[in-house]
Write a protein that binds this DNA or RNA. Structure first.
Lengths: 189, 189
DNA sequence: GACACCTATTCAACAAGTTGAGTATACGGG
DNA sequence: CCCGTATACTCAACTTGTTGAATAGGTGTC
């Protein structure tokens, strides 16, 4: 249910091609919804057939042509209706948490490795968000941006993403500290 | 993929009935995986047919009989194999974030209401986790618990849940502060 | 030049999550 | 007594997410 509105929300920022959307929704960078190219192209077909978006082919040199999608007035209305509806609660579903929950004494090396990877991914995501943040501010302060922006949603979800990844990093480091107490490993970082 | 291992992980804490598992996995309290009763009963059927769990009927007075499930040695092995595999990255998917991202000036009252609800849900979840935390410690300190516990996963995922809900509350309050700047509402809290 | 990756999109089949109910009895509060 | 909730579980159909590829040409590095 959420994917279609996430796509519509993304198109509020401006027209975009499917490939472009695929990059925005990639699990490694997405900060409000993640999706695969297969999902996105399927949903774009549906949204187009329902009149919520309008696609056009853009010819390119030295690259395959691309299909660019634009939000329609019906799509904007659908978004507003979605915002007015009761909101589903956020659902926690994370394979890493399942591993940590299940880990026995013999599993700690594998869990440590997974935690270290997750921490690294969180660091990279945070760096990317900081980069987006700089681009959003464009030299202004946060307060100035908020005072001037027509829509503050992108800023707020970005801040949410940053908070989330910071908490992620913090938790990973707490976990590693506990693992160090239980089975010390002579490595750095 | 994750649900089955989440169920197996939950059964590490001890045998449990389907109804009991439904409560643990309810979206309002779950801190590593959430699932509906329909999913859980279907997955339990599969796990039983594959030999990862063993179910038995427990007769009760004044209540319908219940089916209680126990982890099998094959189930434990399956869990260990799962822990050793590469870990899928966490995927962000949240309807509330989509609404915030999409919100225009006219949507702010609806967004405010949704944020306030989410903050309340996060507060309740955090209170519940604090309660579980107290039960886990059973009068001991965190350090004492960690020193004595055979498996620290439940403690670690609980801490993760607490951190996550604290970040949630923090973000909601930041969002409300921004909304207050934009369209002040004379209400309390 | 070879190889890895990028650009841009597609497909079918399957797995997981959701919807919209339903069964029947017990319990508790007003 | 009535109503809402709890206990315990079930079903089919649907939507959403995933898998495991695939197409073809361009780009960049070694």
């Amino acid at each position: 249910m959420g994917l279609r509105h996430a796509v519509l929300a993304s198109l509020l920022e401006g027209d975009a091609a499917g490939y472009e959307l695929s990059k925005r929704f990639d699990v490694s960078v997405a900060n409000f919804w993640s999706a695969t190219p297969q999902q996105l192209y399927r949903e774009l077909e549906r949204l187009e057939s329902e009149g919520f978006v309008e696609g056009r082919v853009v010819e390119q040199q030295r690259r395959p042509n691309k299909r660019v999608f634009a939000l329609t007035p019906a799509g904007r209305a659908e978004l507003r209706a979605f915002i007015a509806q009761p909101t589903r609660p956020g659902a926690m579903r994370d394979d890493l948490l399942v591993k940590v929950q299940a880990a026995g004494p013999d599993d700690l090396p594998a869990v440590r490795k997974a935690i270290e990877e997750r921490r690294q991914q969180a660091r990279e995501k945070l760096a990317f968000y900081d980069h987006l943040h700089d681009g959003l501010l464009d030299g202004r302060t946060d307060a100035a941006h908020l005072a001037e922006a027509e829509r503050v949603g992108p800023y707020l979800t970005l801040m949410g993403g940053r908070l989330y990844e910071q908490a992620n990093i913090h938790w990973c480091e707490s976990v590693l500290a506990v693992l160090d107490e239980r089975s010390p490993v002579p490595d750095g970082d």
